[in-house]
Design a protein around this nucleic acid. Structure first.
Lengths: 170, 170
DNA sequence: GCCTAATTGCAACTGAATTGCATTAATGGC
DNA sequence: GCCATTAATGCAATTCAGTTGCAATTAGGC
């Protein structure tokens, strides 16, 4: 598995369909010039593989199977990835931070969707916000973040209360 | 002081310039049909008087002088005010919730400014977001929240590092 | 003035995130 | 390939915002 940090640990893993994300993570981490470590690769690969923004808990769940990485390390790796611009942090309404791989060219404007029922956070396409709001004198905008709140496809009004359990929470 | 809950406690206070906000709070709380209590009036008056969104801490600071109200009560009053539509909750990037009196006609779209240096949160005028983003099939938008991040007038690049202490935090 | 349900106060608790420090291991130089 | 060095990790304890359970208080109707 192309230069994965600890060559012994990974050599026994069968080639998984998620392999691509590991390789991608590997390359991205190398490109920063910092050390290539197991936790970094695992966390970034998980983010790359995810179709939605992941909380710390969700990350723990998706990683633990093979290795087990300390909670704190995951926090630190996430901070590091964010600082490197490889991940992107979203402050949820529920005081939980969620992350996704910063694939999209998030220049200075992001948009997210957060489901009010199940909490899922999704990264939407960019939008242009600059002209829309007017700031007081002397205020300098740097980033724009649009959060759309509502119900996701799975939690929509068509299938109510019983057909779906509040997922991705707790 | 026009029908303030406990008539004995307030009668000794000199007519303050902030009196207007107390009267306003009084009226707003009455209008809900629920009980008019000291903590509710104090908290709402503080929010009405504030020029920015206030955190729980900031509220405690601004109230404690005369009466002292339990932390938990403030949390509960804030929840109640929010539920009544009298206050509006903003989830900050720093995992701290801030509140402001829901004066503006916040229909389904708000905009806030958060200073990345001092943390101050300001309520901006409305904006129209509906057309800007496209959601996946089956997703139903309910509220739109635009957060502009950057530097406030006091923290702007003209006066750097030393001339200003990071205010409104801790 | 009295009653009763709505509020409040207190104490203990939760859950996300952070900090300090000793240990481990990725990488560059040999 | 082996070693040193220093960045990264693991562990334990801590912080901090917010919540919960329950007994004591009190606003508002009679």
């Amino acid at each position: 598995m192309a230069g994965l940090c600890c060559n012994r640990a990974m050599s026994t893993n069968p080639p998984s369909p998620a392999k691509r994300h590991y390789l991608q993570a590997d390359t991205l981490i190398r490109s920063t010039g910092a050390r290539l470590t197991r936790p970094r690769v695992e966390v970034l690969a998980a983010l790359l593989a995810a179709e939605q923004a992941l909380s710390h808990h969700e990350l723990e769940e998706r990683i633990d199977r093979s290795v087990d990485i300390d909670r704190v390390t995951i926090y630190r790796v996430l901070d590091w990835l964010t600082a490197q611009g490889l991940a992107h942090r979203i402050a949820g309404d529920d005081r939980v931070r969620r992350f996704n791989a910063a694939g999209h060219a998030h220049e200075g404007a992001h948009a997210h969707f957060q489901c009010e029922r199940c909490g899922t956070v999704l990264c939407l396409d960019e939008f242009s916000a600059d002209p829309v709001v007017r700031l007081p004198r002397g205020f300098r905008p740097q980033h724009y973040e649009l959060t759309v709140k509502g119900l996701c496809a799975g939690c929509g009004p068509s299938r109510r209360a019983d057909t779906r359990t509040p997922a991705h929470r707790h």
